[in-house]
């Protein structure tokens, strides 16, 4: 898990550096090092996000957890979560990835190697 944590930290730092530079999407979506206890959980299983559409409030966090052996991730294309694309780390079985959504909006995402796996976070 050390590597994963580091990777997440690095990714968060990168995302922040990018947003700081442009200012356009400041902290719209923050990648979190650890899963908050009150996060909304989206399980991934059978090549699907089990709840493909979730609605949360601004400031809430979402945790994606992979339940199967096939690796999956969460990938927002450029302009959705930040100016650059936000590509979550690949999750093995039992691993999680969390992000906090600070601004209202609709955030479409997919799994990088499985473009047919699609989901949506609606932030009110």
């Amino acid at each position: 898990m050390t590597f994963l944590t580091k990777a997440r930290t690095l990714m968060a730092a990168t995302a922040m550096a990018l947003t700081a530079a442009t200012g356009a999407f400041a902290d719209k979506v923050e990648v979190l090092d650890t899963a908050p206890e009150d996060a909304v959980v989206v399980n991934i299983d059978q090549l699907k996000y089990e709840t493909p559409e979730i609605t949360i409030k601004a400031g809430d966090a979402v945790t994606w957890t992979n339940q199967e052996v096939m690796p999956h991730n969460v990938h927002f294309t450029a302009g959705v979560a930040a100016e650059a694309e936000l590509r979550g780390t690949m999750l093995k079985k039992g691993e999680s990835w969390s992000a906090r959504f600070n601004e209202p909006g609709t955030y479409d995402y997919h799994c990088t190697p499985h473009p047919f796996m699609r989901g949506k976070v609606i932030v009110e």
Partner: peptide, 10 residues
């Protein structure tokens, strides 16, 4: 000429 894109979306 038509070409296919796989990622990020078909």
């Amino acid at each position: 000429l038509l070409f296919y894109q796989f990622s990020p979306a078909p």
